[in-house]
Nucleic acid binder design. Sequence first.
RNA 1: GCGGAUGUAGCUCAGUUGGUUAGAGUACUGGAUUGUGAUUCCAGGUGUCGCCGGUUCAAAUCCGGUCAUCCGCCCCA
Length: 416
Amino acid sequence: MAQSVKGTRDLFGGELDWFQRIEDTVRRAFHRHGYSEIRTPILEEIEVFKRSVGESSDIVHKEMYDFFDKGKRHVAMRPENTAGVVRAVIQHQMLATSDPQLLYYIGPMFRYERMQAGRYRQFWQIGAESFQVSTPESEAESLVMLYDFLRELGLTQLTFSINSVGTPECRPAFHEAFRAFFADREAEFCEDCHRRIGENPLRVLDCKNARCQAALEGHPVLVDFLDPASREHHERLKEILTSLGLPFEENPRLVRGLDYYTRTAFEVLSTDLGAQSALLGGGRYDGLVKQLGGPQVAAFGWSIGLDRLVTLMQQLHGKAPRQAPPVLIPLGPAATLKALELARAWWAAGLEVVLETRGAKLKNALTTANRQGAPLALILGDGELEQGVVAVKDLAAGTQETWALATVQERLLDRR
RNA sequence: GCGGAUGUAGCUCAGUUGGUUAGAGUACUGGAUUGUGAUUCCAGGUGUCGCCGGUUCAAAUCCGGUCAUCCGCCCCA
């Protein structure tokens, strides 16, 4: 039997209900805030990712879902969407004016990884990217949008971790101080950290190894090395978030897995997700657009793991609330024809109604209606047809009454 | 990329040191009830025991390979 490709899965039923509910909620939030959707290709030239995400990152050297197409082009399935959005923004000259560009995306991403709960080779992300806005106020606006729609979805126990990773100008001084700190207690760090200290010292800070975390006690703090403008930026952001009541904590060891971040970096972890605890993350990336061949512009963005958000929602709220429509059950050819006419009018009026078209016996029709969670069964037999009524059974209560046909549409509309 | 487990009915799972025709609950189908579901009673399919190969008189059981899933590491969403 054919099976879905390793690490991919089919979405349907109760799980898809949550995907759709979240997508609806998030789209409304984006539109309220003036963000426009962008849809970029799943396939990009691999260079787009190598040049943005960073050669040294695991995403590029280990997890890229790449291949050569029939034209011998080296392409990759996008492992994240920021690089593609930046490529598109440059390609279509969307930064020709100095106006802000506020964009969002919802779509599948691909990473070639070992399977584990909450980690898939095809997974879904929702993300926002804003260009040509550089203020801490703009970051706060984006974070508040994020926080508010998560609250709207019923997630109330979230805390943002934030940090500033500085700029390419002030980072060398930190690297120097940090390498000196590292050298003093080299033996206490793990093998991986010895590798990291050479190619990407920041990554030592978020090593999961408990010994390394202990060894980091008293380490030089990035924020102390910020240039005055970056420091002011960071302080102002915290001030705004505090005054808005958005729960956050400063985490001096927070760094991100992608190389392009500058100044603000943040993430949200959830202990309810097992080992794959990252729910969302993002930050500022003022150098990336230029790095990919565009103008020097400010940029800020984040992405959230939709699959993991769904997992959380299921843990918190169980099944997505969904009201099945009433079922119209005609008995016999004459009633069936009439039922088609009636249902057609109701559909045109915007009502949700399922029509029993199998010619099933009433017993079976009711069994099916009950199984699908229909609140009402509207039974139309020859007797009802003759009297111009329909028998309406409340499947939860087990009660039954008779409605005049002429009033059914209105009464169904009232029930919504 | 590294390490450890699991795979039996649609679902959740039993299955003895290898032994005859493979089980339970639930779900499903039909009937008791030809126009009344969910509750009750009766009857009934429930199946390539993941797949391929090997050992054996005999394999769901032992061995090898393979695929898939799960857990940990790395990393991330």
